[in-house]
């Protein structure tokens, strides 16, 4: 589904990614962790080209992503993305947040789009909030709306960029529960997160990054119990302390 070969990326002179290779199969759940500034977010933002890589190759569903990509929008339609700061559209109601993509990009009729939106609001357990504005919802509810917004495009892949980092502790679980449920539907997911309990539960593959490089890739069992690299061990010790 996703094939990354020797990806490199610079912000000015700072090397954000160097020689990153990773492949993700359809239906696979990948959790990326690592200290802040290690390039995790940059990596997943390259996948839907919110960032532009400077070297290497990147394929999504067989289409190469790069300067020559004719229709990046067609690729983005198939990739849902959930942001740390939710990024809901504050001037639109919850329902309109969910329908703007299907109506404007997929050219669905408003009625069909609304039916679909209500279905996914049900899926994230907040059908009753459809007519509110994002500012009237709690952080956890906003993030669930953001997940539903992405799902409304019925993407093949979902990217999560630290979806729970901006949430109050008591709201983290409601979002993680939705993500676990989503994982059980067979969605291909790439999550950048520090929630190791979630990672243990759903991940098929753990990736540890530091300073723009992938240090370790392993199944969760092996990753948590016998990390090979010392740096990964140190990171896990810090994260799992509590």
């Amino acid at each position: 589904m996703i094939e990354i070969r020797g990806l490199g990326m610079y912000f000015g002179k700072f090397q954000a990614l160097s020689n990153v290779s990773l492949s993700v199969e359809a239906g696979e759940k990948v959790v990326i962790c690592g200290p802040s500034g290690s390039g995790k977010s940059t990596l997943i933002r390259c996948i839907n080209r919110l960032e532009e890589h400077s070297s290497g190759q990147l394929f999504v569903d067989g289409v190469e992503i790069g300067e020559e990509t004719r229709n990046i929008r067609n690729v983005r339609m198939e990739i849902g993305m959930v942001f740390q700061q939710f990024n809901l559209f504050p001037h639109l109601t919850v329902l309109d947040n969910l329908t703007v993509g299907p109506v404007r990009v997929r050219k669905m009729s408003r009625r069909d789009a609304e039916r679909r939106a209500r279905k996914y609001l049900q899926r994230v357990h907040i059908p009753e909030q459809a007519d509110k504005y994002p500012s009237q919802l709690s952080g956890g509810q906003q993030q669930r709306v953001a997940i539903a917004r992405s799902l409304c495009m019925e993407p093949k892949i979902m990217l999560f960029d630290e979806p729970t980092s901006a949430l109050d502790p008591e709201m983290i679980n409601e979002v993680l529960d939705v993500m676990v449920e989503l994982a059980s539907t067979g969605m291909t997911m790439i999550c950048v997160t520090h929630e190791m309990g979630f990672a243990r539960k759903v991940a098929d593959k753990m990736v540890f990054m530091e300073e723009g490089e992938i240090i370790e890739t392993a199944p969760p069992e092996e990753f948590f119990n016998h990390p090979r690299s010392k740096r990964c061990q140190m990171f896990l010790d810090k994260v799992l302390e509590h």
Binding site: R73, R76, N87, F89, H91
Partner: peptide, 27 residues
């Protein structure tokens, strides 16, 4: 308008004119 609005709009698949028309200018 915060940069995140741009990114969210593009991630949903809106074209640049659509981003302006439906997301950025109304805000």
């Amino acid at each position: 308008v915060p940069l995140g609005q741009w990114e969210a709009a593009r991630a949903v698949g809106l074209s640049t004119p659509q981003c302006y028309r439906y997301i950025l200018i109304p805000q």
